[in-house]
Design a protein around this nucleic acid. Structure first.
Length: 484
RNA sequence: AGCGGGGUAGGGUAGCCUGGAGUGCCCGCCGGGCUCAUAACCCGGAGAUCGGUGGUUCAAAUCCACCUCCCGCUACCA
């Protein structure tokens, strides 16, 4: 049994989770469940990022102390993940005492290695957006986002010698081609790193709501450094289960935070003598009906509302099947309904329903020779999941659903009897059993219902070959209901 | 501005890295089969100068150059 450590980003808790957060966690969850399925010892981490000025402001606006404010949102995140079937093993919060202590320990070590120095941070600052901009980013000398005036601000800060790690990062990318995933994202990062790295400011003197910088307690630690460290503080670095699970096998992230995970994070780890993660997978973004999702447009999609309306499994299925992992895609309720009605109800649900009907009418012993098994591209599914390519894997499983439907049409079991009929049913029931097993990581609830109706127990990858069908079939209605 | 991604039948996509007959999938359309099943399932068909131009090659959707249009990122939006 090998270990497998998968993480999601920790989410900045200014508001409740939307469909993008749900996507990231669903992808990570499918990966985590798959690795449990193939027998790995999995540690699946998610959590919340709770420090920083924006959160302080949001708490002020809500009229609550910061800690109370983030407590409420962290609980909300947990509720959402439970609702969406996210099988995390640990939920880390950056306001956890143990996290704060470890972050300070880590920063001390980087400092002792000579990679932190005092300097000053300056740049154009937009007060209303609370954001610094470079000369290049300004539009006609004004804020590129809101168009208001910007001020030149200079602030004392401590810096991390990111520039020192340029060559080591490039070498790491070279030696570990799978680290930057998917490929389409890797050139972008390499180009930018080749273009030169600037040291980065890692403390703030104006921000109160954060972890104290141990070298100079007038500063707090920049939230990104605080946040990135969650991946090792959750393991209890340098003790705890760190030795067992580190390095992370995969950090699942959105493409917009790829830079932090593939450049700053490994550099920080290099500085403190810790191995970098094995893979950072940057997935794409969802638009909503063709438009960028944003609060101001008012098209933010609530994943819980979708799950309530169409079922958790339909939502999970749509998120994985709608776009190749790593690409961008478009979310629409119309698209979700089309996949629910057409693929889940008509193709998959109907397959189970018709097979179960035929099987229930049959009184004899279910036996036969494997005929349908050759249509199952199990090796390709395993290979895809190893990449990971959840999109291709799910497509291959559904290709097998199609093969099973075709088998019913070709064999016409309703006009068969005796051994012939038994053989057809044998093949179909075994196909259904394996489909149920393989879909477990993607649609855990439906998978459970399929097993129950087939009267078989759960299993693992090694059970995904045609054996003797030992279930007791019991039809219990449709797996998926059509909508509208 | 720099960097990255994309432009494939009516719509949506996969294929592109590792070149080999436009090959595949979904929706829609036309025709047929079946009646176990959620008007579901299966088969066949129509429909594409693979954004444009030029190049490399025996061979280009695929590699290269340029052009064009769309989108994203540029160091706190999954």
């Amino acid at each position: 049994m090998s270990k497998f450590y998968v993480t999601t980003p920790i989410y900045y808790v200014t508001d409740k989770p939307h469909i993008g957060h749900a996507y990231t966690n669903t992808v990570a969850d499918v990966i985590a469940r798959w690795h449990r399925f193939i027998g790995d010892d999995v540690f699946f981490l998610t959590g919340t990022d709770e420090h920083g000025e924006k959160i302080q402001k949001a708490a002020d606006a809500a009229g609550k102390p910061a800690q109370e404010f983030v407590d409420g949102l962290a609980a909300e995140y947990k509720r959402v993940w439970e609702r969406l079937g996210i099988s995390y093993d640990h939920f880390i919060r950056t306001s956890d005492k143990s996290h704060e202590e470890i972050v300070q320990k880590f920063v001390n070590r980087v400092y002792a290695n000579g990679d932190i120095y005092k300097g000053s941070y300056e740049g154009w600052y937009c007060v209303s957006d609370e954001t610094f901009f470079t000369d290049l980013q300004l539009k006609e000398g004004r804020c590129p986002d809101c168009g208001k005036e910007v001020k030149w601000i200079k602030e004392e800060s401590y810096f991390f010698r990111l520039s020192k790690y340029q060559d080591r990062l490039l070498k790491y990318y070279e030696d570990n081609p799978g680290f930057l995933s998917p490929r389409t994202r890797s050139d972008e990062i390499k180009n930018r790193v080749r273009g030169g790295l600037k040291d980065i400011s890692i403390t703030r003197s104006e921000v109160e709501w954060g972890i104290r910088f141990p070298i100079d307690r007038g500063h707090t630690i920049y939230v990104w450094v605080d946040a990135l460290l969650n991946y090792i503080t959750a393991l209890g670095w340098p003790g705890g289960t760190f030795g067992k699970f580190w390095p992370a096998d995969i950090h699942v992230v959105g493409k917009e935070i790829n830079w932090f995970h593939t450049v700053i994070w490994p550099a920080l780890l290099f500085s403190s003598g810790i191995a970098p993660p094995l893979k950072v997978f940057a997935h794409g973004w969802w638009t909503v009906e063709g438009r960028k999702m944003s609060k101001s447009v008012g098209n933010v999609v609530d994943p819980v509302a979708m799950a309530d309306k169409y079922s958790v499994d339909a939502l999970r299925y749509f998120l994985i099947k709608e776009m190749p992992l790593g690409e961008d895609g478009d979310f629409s309720e119309k698209g979700l309904v089309a996949r629910l009605n057409g693929e889940l109800a008509s193709d998959l649900g109907n397959l189970f329903y018709r097979v179960l009907t035929l099987a229930e009418r049959f009184n004899g012993e279910i036996k036969g020779a494997p005929e349908l098994e050759k249509e199952l591209e199990l090796d390709s599914i395993v290979e895809a999941m190893g990449k990971p390519d959840t999109f291709t894997a799910l497509n291959l499983i559904f290709k097998f659903v199609g093969s099973a439907n075709k088998y019913v049409n070709d064999k016409r079991p309703w006009s068969q009897e005796g051994d012939e009929l038994s053989n057809s049913l044998y093949n179909l029931l075994e196909a259904c059993r394996i489909i149920a097993l393989l879909l477990g990581p993607f649609m855990p609830e439906a998978s459970g219902k399929m097993m129950e109706q087939l009267g078989v127990r759960g299993g693992s990858l090694k059970d995904c070959s045609f054996g003797k069908f030992q279930g007791k079939v019991k039809k219990m209605g449709h797996l998926f209901n059509k909508v509208e």
